[in-house]
Design a protein around this nucleic acid. Structure first.
Lengths: 339, 339
DNA sequence: TTGAAAGCGCTAACAG
DNA sequence: CTGTTAGCGCTTTCAA
């Protein structure tokens, strides 16, 4: 059998001090003054015996788990995380990196329809929860009844007592659309995932309309495509647009991956980007650079988004405004032509 | 301040029983016989007070964390998880799903060069570790010194005391290559990520050579492309192959995402798949279906791979052979032409 | 500058 | 069938 794990008592014995002292040394507590020599004895013992603190015990007494829960949207329960959109993978990556750097670890979960996430959160005594993307309303309802700090990423729920991190989705979409307008386009399509009231997609839809209105262009319902955030749906759109009677000359897509699909669909229909149709994407994930042509897109700082989320959870002492808004930037590449 | 969490003592008081009895009921212990009426009283109290067990306490006394660690390869520390290859996302998804179903949760980590993962594992008292992909040798060395069960996915380290899950990579690659040979191809290129001794890529390389040898085709070094597992590198290969003097007529790629890139690179060079060049991929991720043309590829059961990994960690009582080998299947689609 | 001891919430002998 | 109690490994008063 594996030998018993080394604990504080062992260190105390080895270093000829009490467990309290060991604890003080291990945690480098500033409010306790320990003799240099004692510190050294303890540290030597730790090294010699290979002591590693037991976080479960620490959690129990401190009532703090050093654990952050991240909820990732799934295509269907038990199926796949939405990593087909690279945005989520990049985000998770930055969350994990920043959390680990601060001594926290990341617990991931998919969503189950029947089981509330709250139970997991409470069982584990999570120190914070990061919810990515849109979820059913009752999901958020549940979460209201907890004292665990929650950060919503890419979800607009102003009335809820959660932190949120977002970009100016509406303005970003407006900028993207205006860019197209400035390039001489007036027949501009909108391509996105499902448009729901509390999601980024709706905001971006509003921004799209803002730009059109300001330019006195009427919104044409035939130019609105809304489905799933996938290259598959994008390819669908591409095909449909190619065969549309009064075809748009440009498309604003709310995700690079959709834009990517559109390009493929268009190619299949022998249309070329940007010669026949221009397109602007969103996110600036690696896909934008791997498209042919490379995608002009709205870049958001994914790393910062994850980083900020973790910081909000960990150092949320004196946060005044619960809503953090990050900057965006339009990256010009090759997918838009001047009309 | 948040009110104190409900604990067993509260339930015991409410239900007029002892904490031991509460524990027995909560855990539905078969070895204890409890009066129906008592059970009901306890369950009612649990519901009334909204009791949720504290896993940290349970972990402390049981010496069991119900936590499984998953190590995902990263492009660089602090950069991104390798989710640009959809395979990893799908795998993680299935691991999380199966684990949760069994009452375990999943802790994810990237890899740090300087800090051993072992420390995290020990601190958390992980019940199991799943290592995905290839890592530096010292990574595995560290892990040998732990009593935590380890499952290696897609890594060949026979001499190490770990479980492993794999497919017959060598045979799979041979099947793929033979398929190409049977279609009349003799100039067959090999495209992969870095080829290292303990990785799947090397095995697949061997399988590729096996098939060639059996067909008396000499291995041509000019046909071996080895770089990173990315669409970007694939696009590179595509371009290079297009301009190659004695161009191959077919390519076997060890990852769909590379194959996908190759197709794009080839297209850019005005070559068409499969008319000019045939290609077989590997994994059967969503990318294979989203390619144009759709990719003929080796399908591996990613869900089962994740599921098996979790099962090995949790129910590893009487496992006889440490190496689990899963089946594969060649999926015929549109990317290969008869010569 | 250090240590004794209580207790975090839970499980598991063991006793009744 | 149910309760008492001793820890699990750690932090933290409080006392020395």
């Amino acid at each position: 059998m594996a030998t018993r794990r080394i604990n504080m008592k062992d260190i105390a014995r080895e270093a000829n001090v009490s467990v309290a002292t060991v604890s003080y040394v291990i945690n480098k507590r500033k409010d306790q003054t320990i003799a240099k020599s004692t510190i050294k004895r303890v540290e030597d013992a730790v090294k010699k015996l290979g002591y590693v603190p037991n976080l479960a015990a620490k959690a129990l007494v401190e009532n703090k788990s050093y654990l952050i829960g991240v909820v990732i949207p799934q295509t269907e329960p038990g199926k796949q995380f939405m990593f087909s959109n690279p945005f989520y993978g990049e985000l998770l990556s930055s969350i994990e990196f920043v959390a680990r750097d601060k001594g926290y670890h990341v617990l991931i979960s998919g969503t189950d329809v029947d089981q509330s996430y709250l139970e997991i959160a409470n069982k584990r005594g999570l120190d914070g929860i990061i919810i990515v993307g849109i979820h059913p309303d009752n999901y958020y309802e549940d979460l209201k009844n907890t004292s665990i700090p929650v950060v919503l990423i890419d979800s607009y729920c102003d009335n809820l007592p959660f932190f949120s991190i977002s970009i100016e989705d509406r303005k970003s979409a407006k900028i993207a659309t205006q860019y197209l307008i400035n390039k001489g386009h007036r027949k501009i399509a909108f391509a996105s995932g499902v448009i729901t009231g509390n999601g980024v997609t709706y905001e971006r839809f509003l921004g799209y309309k803002d730009a059109l209105e300001e330019a006195n262009i009427e919104v044409n319902d035939d130019y609105i495509y809304s489905g799933t955030v996938s290259q598959e749906y994008g390819a669908d759109i591409g095909l449909k647009i190619a065969n549309q009677k009064d075809r748009p000359t440009a498309i604003f897509s709310t995700a690079d991956i959709i834009a990517f699909g559109i390009i493929n669909g268009l190619k299949k229909a022998k249309l070329s980007v940007p010669n026949d149709i221009s397109i602007v994407g969103f996110d600036d994930t690696w896909i934008a650079r791997d498209c042919d042509p490379q995608l002009t897109t709205i870049k958001q700082d994914v790393f910062k988004k994850g980083q900020k989320a973790v910081e909000l959870l960990i150092d949320n002492e004196n946060i005044t405004n619960k809503n953090t808004v990050l900057d965006i930037e339009l990256i010009e590449r090759e997918s838009v032509a001047q009309l």
